[in-house]
Simulated assay, not measured.
Amino acid sequence: MIRVLLADDEALVRTGLRLLLQTAPDITVVAEADDGRAAVEACVRLTPDVVLMDVQMPGLDGVGAARELSALPAPPRILMLTTFDAETYLLPALRAGAHGFLLKDAQPGQVLDAVRNTAAGLHALAPEAVNHLVARAAAEPPPTVPPRLPSLTPREREVLVAIADGLSNAQIGRRLSLRVPTVKAHVSRIMEKLHCESRVQAGLLAMRAGLRGEASPTDQV
């Protein structure tokens, strides 16, 4: 069962999301919060699997809350939800540790799929968010290898490529014939070596360095 915490300052939005999530047999809402500070405090008490959180809230906003949640000993997966311009909030949210980004006009099925994918360790990005990342990457100078990448072992580079491909730990294990605990250990070392706070950040770093092309077609899951 995927345990979800809802965080939004609008009670009507929280109610709608709760009713939607309750239609799924594999998802349960464990708590609601009306601002970022309440969301962080509830996560410390309840340790949900996924936090579905608005970007703009009074007091501590969604980006600030994501930053604090990512620093917890057992951080939840964070799925940001907003009606505001994706381009304005996308990169700050991802840099703060968010694992997904949806607009509030997403279809019900998209929201449910995003919660499931986020809980499974995948990245859930709205099409508008993906388009923005692609456009931003196309407008930037040709990528250069960041100075920290050479510190990775060959196996860690393979795991990083798989992270950039959006694979979960289990999928990475199948691709590289590794046990999941071994994959988790590699991911932890990669995050430490690259000074990344989330898998999204590590994946973006790999894409900027052009590492996704290192995966052979037969490696795809």
Rank of each mutant, 00 (worst) to 15 (best):
L20I: 10
I2K: 00
A74T: 13
A11K: 14
L205T: 13
K104H: 09
G121M: 07
R148W: 09
R189T: 10
E32P: 02
L91R: 10
A114R: 01
N169S: 11
I190N: 00
P217G: 11
G100W: 07
E158T: 11
Q201K: 07
R116P: 06
Q22P: 11
V130N: 12
A7R: 01
L21R: 05
P142R: 13
L91Q: 07
V50H: 01
G16Y: 12
A119P: 05
L90W: 09
L122H: 07
V111M: 08
L103A: 13
V111I: 15
L60Y: 00
M191D: 03
L52P: 03
L5V: 12
H186D: 12
A65G: 05
G62N: 01
L79G: 01
D61T: 14
V221K: 02
G213Y: 00
T218L: 14
G59K: 04
T15R: 12
V187H: 05
L176K: 04
I2Y: 01
L90F: 06
R174I: 00
T82F: 08
D35F: 02
S198V: 10
C43P: 10
S188I: 07
G213I: 04
T47W: 03
L176S: 11
V134P: 00
P147V: 14
P147K: 11
G62D: 06
A202E: 06
T23Y: 03
K104T: 09
V200N: 02
R189C: 02
L46K: 03
A124Q: 01
A185V: 13
Q107S: 14
L160F: 11
A209R: 06
L6W: 10
A129Y: 01
G97D: 07
V51A: 06
I27E: 01
G166R: 01
D105G: 07
A138Q: 02
L46C: 02
A39G: 06
V183G: 08
